[in-house]
Computed example of a mutant assay.
Amino acid sequence: MAYKISPDSCVACGTCIDECPVGAISAGDVYVIDASACTECGTCADVCPAEAIAPEA
Results as ranks from 00 to 15, higher is better:
C10N: 09
C13H: 13
A37H: 01
Y31K: 00
D46N: 03
T39W: 09
A45N: 06
D46P: 00
C41N: 10
I5E: 11
G28E: 08
E51W: 12
T43W: 10
E56W: 05
K4P: 01
S9D: 15
P49T: 07
G14S: 03
I53A: 10
D8V: 07
V22A: 07
I33Y: 01
M1T: 14
V30Y: 05
M1C: 07
V32Y: 01
G23A: 14
T39K: 06
T39L: 09
S9R: 11
D29G: 01
A24G: 14
A12S: 15
C16E: 07
A45V: 03
C41Q: 04
T15L: 15
P49Q: 01
C13T: 15
V22Y: 10
A2V: 12
V11T: 15
V47S: 03
A57V: 01
C41H: 09
G28T: 03
A37P: 02
V47H: 02
T43D: 14
A12M: 07
G23Q: 11
A45D: 02
A50S: 15
A45G: 10
C48M: 05
G23R: 07
A45I: 03
G23S: 13
T39F: 07
I5R: 00
C48G: 05
G42T: 05
T43Q: 12
I33M: 05
I5Y: 10
A12L: 04
S26M: 08
G28P: 05
V32T: 08
D18L: 13
I25C: 04
D8C: 04
P7F: 11
E56P: 05
A52W: 01
A27R: 08
T39M: 10
C48A: 06
A35S: 15
D18N: 04
P7H: 08
